[in-house]
Design a binder for these strands. Structure first.
Lengths: 105, 105
DNA sequence: GACTATATGTAGTCCGTCTACATAACAAGT
DNA sequence: ACTTGTTATGTAGACGGACTACATATAGTC
């Protein structure tokens, strides 16, 4: 599965990843690839704009760091982000119930 | 849950409903409301354009009928639609696994 | 006669996600 | 030195799904 098919769950996936600890964009992409058992492989053009959107919304905070010449923008989830994650998880669970009911299993 | 939150699953929901038997737009809306335990309440502005899109794609076929002065456009799922439904169900299951893995339950 | 439910549809908008591209430093191999 | 692959961040432009609000019309009920 490439980025097609995440259907509005992108923010929730990113926030859930950041809840495990702060990370920069590229690390989020690889973390999601690993946690999903190689099923998710998000393109940078999807993740980086999403992080900026989340930062504008106050759900994550970003800061620049240096690591042996490489600049990284490291993001951490905020309190608002944790709230948003809970909401995202809830609406995901509701969707899951509805889909299960309609699809039958 | 209103239509927010179905996130790309609209076609799958409609096709799954039509698999149980042909139906017109309004009946699809009420069927989804009932099957979802009143959680789903899709606006007509979401469902009717979706049905036309599905018809253009060849996933459903529609025909006009009359029932005591009321005109209805009754849709049936096609063979292509059944294939599309299987694909939709598969990608849904994949998404569900990924979300479960990342969210941790 | 008024209101609710049934029934279909359009117009215009918003925004998430995509593809493709641009940039750059470090690491390893030849 | 050169090339290739990995790490790393980002923009531009486009597409399309879903939304809100509106328009229309019949049937049934109070």
């Amino acid at each position: 599965m490439d980025a097609d098919g995440i259907h509005g769950q992108l923010d929730t996936l990113i926030l859930a990843t950041l809840k495990r600890g702060e990370a920069h964009g590229y690390a989020i992409i690889t973390a999601l690839r690993e946690h999903s058992g190689e099923r998710l492989d998000l393109p940078s053009g999807t993740v980086y704009p999403a992080l900026r959107r989340l930062e504008r919304a106050g759900h994550v905070s970003g800061k620049w760091t240096q690591s042996s010449g490489r600049r990284r923008r490291v993001y951490a989830i905020t309190d608002d982000g944790l709230t948003a994650l809970d909401k995202g998880r809830q609406s995901w669970l509701t969707l899951r119930e509805v889909m299960t009911a309609v699809l039958g299993t």
